[in-house]
Computed example of a mutant assay.
Amino acid sequence: MHVLLTGASGDIGRFVMRKLLADGCRVTALGRRPVDDPSVAFSGFDLADPVPNLPAADALVHCALLHEPGRFRGGEGSDPETFQSVNVDGSRRLFEAARRAGCRQAVFLSSRAVYGDHRSGEILLETDEALPDSLYGEVKLAGERALQALCGGSFRGSVLRATGVYGVPPGKTGHKWSDLFETFRRGEAVPPRIGTEVHGDDLAGAVALMLRQDLKAGSPFRIFNVSDLLLDRHELLRLYSKTIGLDRALPVPVTVTVTGDGAPGVMAIDRLKSLGWSPGGPGRLQAFLRSQS
């Protein structure tokens, strides 16, 4: 299978690229510059391109996002208009170009931000009404709808609403918790926080699973939640300190009431699990922490 991949040099794209290559796919990275892997072809692409010119392929995986480096939510910085227009219109033009290039399917990396942050302690289902309360969430939801509008006939689309992604991206040494771990090692106070997480390899596995689905079965457009752990920084740093043998003060646990207040909404993943997806859970988190010792 020949797969076009945007965002291949980004953190999520690196996990996806490694998985696609391991599965024997032929991968062409779409971007401003080639990736540092001679086995990956390159085709120049920018989300701002008015008419993207894509090579013929079987599928598209869209991970790219124009944003301020290191930020997703709030990544619009001081230019929300450009953030919105390039990401929304650019994604729509990309999906249209992929269909013209012969792609039979597209996988779009969306976000749990489409649900909004107002649903504390609730279970979030793919069938729920999306009510984003950030520009990032609005942009991701618009991308989903742009893909859905093109699906039908010989072209199918899958949306993966991913939660926070942890793990060391292939080819890099740092990760999302590098600064947090360094702050903790120095003995500085760490503010409490609780959130949902999934390892990058598990997210990449979900992408690969989408590409393996029977294109003749089911709806031409599908949405799947991708999440694994509800993780309190208190527990994360307790495990980390135990793994590396470090005695430091832990942040206080986040207080969660019986009604769920204090905890984020947790995405249901039954739909994805029914297709055979099985995330690594606490075992994969422990393996990651051991790799940081």
Rank of each mutant, 00 (worst) to 15 (best):
S158G: 06
G167Y: 06
Q148K: 13
S178E: 08
W177Q: 04
R156F: 08
Q148L: 02
W177L: 12
S154L: 00
K172L: 14
V165A: 05
H175C: 05
F155V: 02
A149Q: 13
A142K: 10
C151S: 01
A162Q: 09
P170C: 07
G157D: 06
S158D: 12
K172G: 00
C151Y: 01
L160W: 10
Y166A: 02
G174V: 00
Q148V: 04
G174P: 00
T173P: 00
K176W: 03
G174Q: 09
Q148T: 01
S158L: 03
K172Y: 07
Y166F: 15
S154M: 00
G157F: 07
H175Y: 12
G143W: 03
G174W: 00
V165Y: 05
V139W: 06
G153M: 06
W177K: 00
V168L: 03
G143N: 03
E144G: 07
G153L: 02
V139Q: 11
P169G: 08
A142D: 11
G143L: 08
S158Y: 15
L147W: 08
A142P: 11
A142S: 15
G152A: 10
A146S: 15
R145A: 14
P170N: 09
G171L: 06
T163W: 01
K172E: 13
G153P: 08
K172F: 05
W177N: 04
L147C: 05
R145G: 02
P169F: 07
V165F: 09
G152Y: 11
L160R: 11
A142L: 12
W177I: 01
G153Q: 10
G174L: 02
G167T: 11
R145N: 15
K172P: 00
G152E: 07
R156N: 14
A142V: 11
A162C: 14
P170D: 09
R156T: 14
A142Y: 08
V168Y: 01
E144P: 03
R156I: 11
A142N: 13
G167V: 03
K176M: 13
R156K: 13
S178F: 00
E144D: 15
G164T: 13
K140F: 12
G164W: 12
P170G: 03
K176T: 13
G167A: 04
T163M: 06
V139M: 12
G171S: 11
S154T: 10
S154G: 04
E138D: 08
R156V: 06
R145P: 04
L150S: 10
G167N: 08
T173G: 15
L147H: 01
Y166S: 05
V159P: 05
L150M: 09
A146K: 12
L147Y: 06
G167S: 10
R145D: 14
C151W: 00
V168S: 02
G157H: 06
G153W: 11
E138C: 10
F155E: 06
Y166Q: 02
W177Y: 14
W177A: 07
S154P: 13
G164P: 01
G171H: 05
Y166R: 01
V165N: 02
K172D: 07
G152S: 13
V159G: 11
S178T: 15
A162G: 04
A149D: 15
C151P: 03
V168I: 15
L160A: 13
P170R: 02
R161M: 11
Y166D: 04
S178M: 04
V168W: 02
C151K: 03
K176H: 07
G157W: 05
W177G: 00
